[in-house]
């Protein structure tokens, strides 16, 4: 069976199944027990080091599981020049891991000679769209493959914003040819913090650009919700996930957990909830897992 026949939902969106974020706390368990998980997502920067255990463990786990790469430091929205050393290291890691795809965030992290080490939001307007579309194109040309850009949780709205985040994200994807990593929890968090309807976001996103879903937990701090990744996925986010599946069809889904990390088995059980929701929301044919690496060429 060739790859295209193997991709049931459509030709541009292979479905990898259900994955987890690979975390150091689970290395030993994964290496020793090889638990059933369709794929892992790695944080790229954790392996952008010269050598040693991080890369040795990565190679061992990669031998048994498909992977995608997720970065936090590309600073694609910054007005600084693109960090070519970072991009070279990223390309080296991509060549090592051979991921299905790589992603980063719709944000900026570094400017004014300082790295905030945070995912800082952008004003949503035409000037920023032009800026990002150009930079994403440069990254994709350098890496030789299209990237995925993820919506983030945010706590501020700029006076300079003149459109919704989903309109902004669609336009950037359209102009640069990048794909969208849709974080369902981030939609829920930002919807609460900025008083919009999360389903409006999901309804507004262009279906054909969505390549992956993130799920995660969050925390309430007074009137705001903070994207802490330290809790289980909550029921309203599961409901939104179901809604997103009905809107987009089968999309590769994973759970991010970055703090208060439970035993692997517990996290795997939580992933089973995602599988269960998807099984009920979609047909078995839609949930057929693709078997071939994708996004080899620039879109």
């Amino acid at each position: 069976m060739d790859a295209k026949q193997d991709m049931k939902n459509d030709d541009t969106r292979p479905f990898l199944g259900f994955g987890l974020g690979l975390r150091t706390e689970h290395y030993q368990h994964v290496i020793e027990h090889k638990p059933q998980v369709d794929w892992f997502e790695i944080i790229s920067e954790n392996y952008m080091v010269p050598g040693g255990k991080p890369l040795a463990n990565l190679d061992k786990i990669r031998a048994d599981y498909p992977m995608v790469m997720h970065g936090v430091s590309m600073s694609i929205g910054s007005t600084d020049p693109l960090n070519t050393n970072y991009l070279k290291d990223l390309k080296t890691l991509i060549n090592r891991v051979e991921p299905y795809w790589y992603s980063d965030h719709l944000c900026w992290t570094h400017a004014h000679n300082t790295n905030s080490h945070d995912l800082l939001p952008l004003p949503y307007n035409e000037a920023t769209i032009n800026h990002l579309a150009s930079r994403i194109s440069q990254v994709q040309d350098f890496i030789g493959r299209p990237m995925l850009v993820e919506n983030l949780s945010s706590y501020v709205t700029y006076n300079e914003s003149v459109m919704s985040e989903w309109e902004f994200l669609n336009e950037i994807a359209k102009r640069s040819g990048c794909y969208i990593l849709l974080d369902i929890n981030n939609i829920f968090v930002s919807a609460h913090n900025h008083q919009f309807k999360p389903k409006d976001y999901i309804n507004g996103i262009d279906n054909e650009r969505v390549m992956q879903f993130h799920l995660a937990g969050h925390s309430y701090q007074g009137d705001m919700i903070i994207d802490t990744h330290d809790h289980d996925v909550c029921d309203p986010v599961w409901d939104l996930y179901k809604y997103a599946l009905q809107r987009f069809g089968a999309v590769s889904t994973m759970i991010e957990r970055d703090d208060n990390i439970p035993e692997f088995a517990e996290l795997r059980q939580e992933l089973a909830i995602a599988e269960d929701i998807a099984t009920k929301a979609l047909s078995a044919e839609q949930l057929h897992i693709a078997g071939q690496p994708v996004l080899k060429g620039v879109a």
């Binding site: 910054s78 007005t79 900026w108 400017a111 004014h112 300082t114 905030s116 800082l120 952008l122 004003p123 000037a127 920023t128 800026h131 700029y158 300079e160």
Partner: peptide
């Protein structure tokens, strides 16, 4: 640029 000024101010 306006975006650069905004980012410098944020930092």
């Amino acid at each position: 640029s306006a975006l650069q000024e905004l980012q410098h101010n944020f930092i």
